[in-house]
Amino acid sequence: MTHPHDQHDTLPDGLIDALRDFDGPAALPSVEHDDALLAQARAHLAEIAPDITAHAAAADHRRRSRVVLGFVGAGGAVAAAAAVTFAVWFGMDGKAPAYGPTMAEQDQANAISDPSSPTWGGPGETPPPSVARQPGPAVAGDVDGSGTLDILDAFALARAVERDGGTPTRGHDFNGDGRVDRQDADWLADRAVALDRSGGRG
């Protein structure tokens, strides 16, 4: 839809010149004003520049804290926050996390349900249904069976490693070294954070 005044309202060059005369001559700038302003600006920008670095460092620190959190059992506010998160997550019932059966339990389950079921060999493969907590779709690395891979999976695995002394489920050998240990939790955490960077949960 066109505006009723869409026809070009133009002015002759002579009239534009007259308008410029009306507008007045250009005022001369002031070196003193320039110097004062630029000095203020430099001071201000010098102050904020370190903040930019600091913000980036803080963000990086927060990201790293989330990763390290489940593995080192760090104290302080961060650990407290994590404990609260886990307490809520597990319904505050004090029971062990349902990260999946132990290797022995899994072997037993496999033997009952499908003796020929192959063992999940590592990342990139879908874990057997008995590994992931039900309900929830099977997602590689989805230790807690929530249907997604996130930092809580790494946390759950770390707790499982700590609790079971290195005998958690076979399907959690994410790095494929034949053992399920803290390195697998680290691998899972890295992957969860990578998902987070791309906009996924984590």
Binding site: P29, A49, I52
Partner: peptide
């Protein structure tokens, strides 16, 4: 930020200072 921030602001200022002064007048 960094060392180039102030220089960039200075360039921006000198580029638009005269027009701003004209407007203010």
């Amino acid at each position: 930020g960094g060392d180039g921030a102030a220089d960039a602001f200075e360039a921006l200022y000198y580029r638009h200072r005269d027009y701003a002064l004209k407007l203010a007048m």
